[in-house]
């Protein structure tokens, strides 16, 4: 089998790419995609840990299923928000949301 740390480094890389997307993207949808990458990185971690440390108990897989579920709910609400805002002001660029300052 591939050593565990292969997966962990893969997950770390994915997580950092996602973090970059979440923090650097201008478009709100882009930010959300970054977050999804981060969540996927977490899932790789969870499943890899499950497989390599406690394969008999499915905790890691369970956790990953919940993460996926929550991600779906989060995406639904988030995208509804984008669309609502877009209707109001024709933009989803995070930096243009500056009604409030201080």
């Amino acid at each position: 089998m591939v050593p565990l740390w292969y997966y962990l480094v893969l997950a770390a890389a994915l997580f950092c790419i996602g973090a970059f997307g979440a923090l650097a993207r201008k478009n709100a949808v882009g930010v959300l995609m970054g977050v999804e990458l981060m969540l996927n990185a977490v899932n790789i971690n969870l499943v890899a840990f499950w497989r390599y440390t406690t394969a008999a108990q499915l905790t890691g897989q369970l956790f990953a299923v919940f993460v996926i579920t929550v991600a779906a709910a989060e995406a639904a609400v988030g995208l509804a928000l984008f669309i609502a805002i877009y209707r109001q002001r024709n933009t989803v660029n995070v930096e243009e949301f500056d009604t409030m300052k201080g």
Binding site: L10, A13, L14, I17, G18, F20, G21, A24, R25, G30, M33, G34, L37
Partner: peptide, 10 residues
């Protein structure tokens, strides 16, 4: 595939 695509995503 994953990492390359992820970089493309962001």
């Amino acid at each position: 595939i994953t990492l390359g695509a992820a970089i493309m995503v962001v």
